[in-house]
Amino acid sequence: MKIFLDTANIDEIREAADIGVIEGVTTNPSLIAKEGRDFKATVKEICEIVHGPVSAEVIALDWEGMVAEGKELAAINEYIVVKVPFTKDGIKATSMLAAEGIDVNVTLVFSPNQALLAAKAGAAFISPFAGRLDDIGHDGIEIVSQCQDVVLNYDYEAEIIAASIRHTEHVRRCAEVGIDVATIPFKVLMQMMKHPLTDIGIDKFLEDWNKANQ
């Protein structure tokens, strides 16, 4: 399973990239606004750090605007993936951008039916939101898995990105059912590296070593 980092914080991205376990980054208008930086400059810098898919989201809601913004974003760097919301206009924009060889990530997906339409439109990535589905009483990871089954059934080239990941259990379940990609917050990535028994084991090794060499 590929791991993308869901953030626009340059320091977090640098640290995760230095560790060597992330293959891409997803951003959205909220994450960019949180950093208080220029949008295009930020995604360009992210591309220079990660050298993998970097999702940059359009602001327009009409297909003409999405296509125009998408082309501008794709011109920033070869790693840019244009992120569009799942709407009728978003799907139309996806098909048009994909026809021109521009990778698209269809976001705000909440059902296998939506995933099917996004795949048929030529999306390179499809992002069902696990955490937000959990919030309304569904099993988010199960629906993410159903979305992937739809794509695999018909050999579409789209990769499923499990988005709205809230905790390490979400990540574990994604890996268990074979989801293509999980995009996770920096905090969750750090939590994945921690286990109390690991810390206890290291302390015990050091204690034994010091005793043996007294």
Rank of each mutant, 00 (worst) to 15 (best):
I3S: 12
I3H: 13
T7K: 06
T7R: 05
A17L: 02
I22Q: 06
I22T: 05
E23N: 14
E23P: 01
G24Q: 10
G24M: 08
G24A: 09
V25I: 09
T26V: 05
T26W: 07
T27Y: 12
L31D: 06
G36R: 12
D38K: 13
D38V: 10
F39C: 08
F39A: 08
A41M: 00
A41C: 00
K44P: 01
S55C: 11
A56Y: 02
A56M: 04
A60M: 02
D62E: 14
V67T: 05
A68G: 01
E69F: 08
G70H: 10
K71L: 12
E72W: 04
I76H: 03
I76Q: 01
I76M: 02
N77E: 02
E78K: 15
E78G: 05
Y79C: 11
V81N: 07
V82T: 12
K83S: 09
V84E: 01
V84Q: 00
V84T: 06
P85Y: 09
F86K: 10
S95C: 05
S95D: 07
S95M: 06
A98K: 00
E100L: 09
D103Q: 14
N105E: 03
T107V: 08
V109N: 11
N113E: 13
L117A: 08
A123D: 04
A124V: 00
F125Y: 15
I126R: 08
I126Q: 05
F129T: 13
R132E: 08
L133Y: 15
L133C: 12
D134I: 15
D135I: 06
G140C: 10
I141V: 15
S145R: 14
Q148F: 05
D149R: 14
L152V: 01
L152A: 11
N153S: 14
N153G: 13
D155F: 11
E157Y: 03
E157K: 14
E157W: 00
E157L: 10
A158W: 06
A158Q: 09
A158E: 02
S164Y: 06
R166T: 07
C174G: 14
C174N: 11
A175S: 09
A175H: 08
D180P: 01
A182V: 06
P185A: 07
K187C: 02
L189E: 01
M190L: 15
M192G: 14
L197S: 06
T198H: 04
T198I: 13
I202E: 06
K204L: 03
K204G: 01
D208Y: 08
Q214F: 05
